[in-house]
């Protein structure tokens, strides 16, 4: 294969990466700004949640001062921004520790769950999707098709509860909550994976069906290339791109979206933390969580976009990215 200019070199690519980085920073900033403002506009008095029961006006004022909530909104935002540049996202009202620390302490648990779910999803969904594509328009495929539709239709908290009832309460195979041993990973992962497998396998099937019907496959088949090679080396190779993109996007979404599963299974991750923090109006903790998860999700997406040229040499970064 002749080597032309590397697909990653050149001013186009560099400017593309810079542009994307800039967009990432901008999106993260706007998100934080929105969250910041919304939090302070929402009704509810954070001081009340951290005051002694039946607090007097004086006590509430003292707490508000301690949290810096008595200052005007712009002032608060300015303080927040200037602290942000020093890497200080504020001190959690509830834990009295740097909010960033609290989030980073619990982030690995969420990441574990997300990774486990993605791995299981990939292992099952990809072969399933390919099988469904090969057997397209046959009766067994219809069954699988309906099953995957069912899989993506069930509410995740319901799946979680049903699994809990069957396996934890009645059969007692697993503990219903917390993360004391590796065994507890099974049920939450299964809950997430059912939905993701359904979605990804359908995507794989869609792409594969389209690719398998393409003229070049027919030509290759007529040249005598074996079916298995056609399926995997030709059609699948071309389908890999949207699938990898989807997996990457799903992973990023999972970092934001395992909240419900974490609540149902009482997983010590970031999702449950933020729901709790929202109820208690722990502003710094909510802000820190949003900041971390948004940046993480954007970084993953950026990584997926950068991996593109490896997967498809026809893609040049910076062009046709619409």
């Amino acid at each position: 294969m002749t080597c032309g200019p590397s697909r990653w070199s050149g001013p186009d690519t560099v400017s593309y990466v810079l542009k994307r980085l800039g967009q990432t920073v901008l999106t993260a900033f706007l998100t934080i700004l929105t969250v910041f403002v919304l939090l302070r506009l929402a009704p509810g008095d954070p001081a009340y949640n951290y005051a002694p029961p039946n607090p007097s006006t004086e006590q509430l004022e003292a707490i508000r001062k301690q949290f810096g909530l008595d200052q005007p909104l712009l002032q608060q935002f300015w303080t927040f921004l200037s602290n942000l540049f020093h890497g200080d996202v504020g001190t959690s009202f509830q834990f009295k520790q740097p909010a960033l620390q609290v989030v980073m302490d619990r982030l690995p648990y969420t990441i574990t769950l997300a990774i486990a779910a993605i791995v299981v999803t990939t292992i099952i969904a990809v072969p399933l999707g390919v099988w469904m594509a090969r057997r397209n328009n046959t009766a067994p495929e219809l069954g699988a098709n309906i099953a995957t539709i069912a899989g993506q239709s069930m509410p995740d908290f319901w799946i979680g509860f049903v699994l809990l009832i069957i396996f934890a309460v009645n059969l007692s195979w697993f503990q219903p909550s917390g993360f004391a041993t590796w065994g507890e990973l099974v049920l939450p992962t299964a809950t997430i994976a059912i939905l993701q497998i359904a979605l990804i396998s359908r995507l794989v099937r869609r792409e594969m069906v389209a690719n398998l019907a393409a003229p070049y496959i027919t030509v290759a088949r007529s040249r005598g290339v074996p079916e298995r090679d056609l399926t995997w080396k030709y059609a699948f190779a071309n389908s890999a791109i949207p699938v990898v993109t989807a997996l990457g996007t799903r992973f990023a979404a999972m970092l934001n979206g395992v909240v419900i599963v974490e609540v149902v299974f009482k997983w010590p991750g970031v999702g449950a933390l933020v729901v709790d923090a929202l109820q208690r109006r722990d502003f710094p903790l909510i802000q820190a969580t949003v900041l971390v998860t948004v940046i993480l999700a954007l970084v993953v997406q950026l990584a997926v976009d950068l991996v593109y040229p490896i997967l498809d040499p026809r893609v040049r970064l910076g062009e046709a990215s619409s």
Binding site: Y234, T245, Y308, V315, A320
Partner: peptide, 12 residues
Amino acid sequence: AHEVSGDRTSVR
């Protein structure tokens, strides 16, 4: 969505 244009007739 990244639209990959170009035809698919090349044998890989």
